[in-house]
């Protein structure tokens, strides 16, 4: 499977995602410069975490004007797989490829720690390999992960199965106590109606090797490969 990892000025999880896709998952992966507009040949485009343009304005607000984003829009409309992690999620929101917006964490502090998230639906390409309500232990690292969306939209999203992950307890219960950033209904990740565009705050690339303390991120990668009909490497 051919992955493109977009580099915006200020991306800083680009190398990590490139490494995990290439070295851990053994997939074909290339960097895509933010001024490039040619996404032909890619099966999946990944918008990595970081601080695009320093996030001096609203997070992701400048990056979504990068030339590559017009192409990402077309790529998604044509059914290509798109995943935005952390800042990548924020950029997808700004670009309107996913519903909702991001506010600062309610604690007004950056938070870096392992959290538990619950798989809310297994009928997306990103979670088809998980079991119902599976709990994944994956780190977050963000200042603006407080996901907000209008009530009406949220209700529609829930009906369509667009809420993909929620912050939860290790035993999978979803409550305010386990909400690290104030996100509406503990939402940690959402997808578009078609399911081919995913945005999530937790970093699956940081939980893809036992050496780093968790391999739960592999559930997401494995689902994606499986969905795309790629033979899943045996190490997974």
């Amino acid at each position: 499977m051919r992955f493109g990892v977009v580099i915006f000025p200020g991306s800083n999880c680009d190398h990590d995602c490139f490494y995990v896709l290439g070295e851990v998952l053994n997939q074909d992966v290339k960097y895509v410069w933010h001024q490039s507009t040619d996404l032909s040949g890619f099966d999946c485009i990944l918008l990595p975490g970081g601080f695009s343009y320093g996030d001096y304005l609203r997070t992701g607000a400048v990056a979504h004007f990068s030339p590559v984003m017009k192409s990402v829009e077309r790529f998604a409309a044509d059914g290509g797989m798109v995943i935005g992690i952390c800042n990548g999620f924020q950029i997808l929101l700004e670009a309107g490829l996913l519903p909702g917006a991001m506010m600062r964490n309610t604690g007004l502090k950056f938070i870096c720690r392992f959290v538990d998230i619950r798989v809310e639906t297994t009928s997306t390409p990103w979670t088809c390999g998980a079991y119902e309500h599976q709990v994944l232990r994956i780190p977050i690292a963000h200042n603006e992960g407080n996901y907000q969306v209008p009530y009406q939209t949220l209700e529609e999203m829930k009906l369509r199965g667009q809420v993909v992950f929620r912050y939860c307890s290790p035993a999978s219960s979803v409550s305010g106590e386990f909400n690290p950033n104030g996100a509406t209904e503990n939402i940690a990740g959402v997808c578009n109606r078609e399911g081919n565009v995913l945005g999530l705050m937790p970093h699956p690339e940081r939980a893809s090797e036992a050496e780093l303390g968790s391999t739960d991120g592999l559930v997401i990668w494995r689902s994606l490969l499986d969905h795309c009909g790629v033979e899943v490497p045996t190490i997974l």
């Binding site: 190398h15 990590d16 995990v20 502090k109 870096c112 720690r113 690339e205 940081r206 780093l212 303390g213």
Partner: peptide, 12 residues
């Protein structure tokens, strides 16, 4: 926890 101590996926 206010510092990103995991980025670069090297912190074991």
């Amino acid at each position: 926890e206010q510092y990103d101590h995991m980025v670069r996926v090297n912190t074991v």
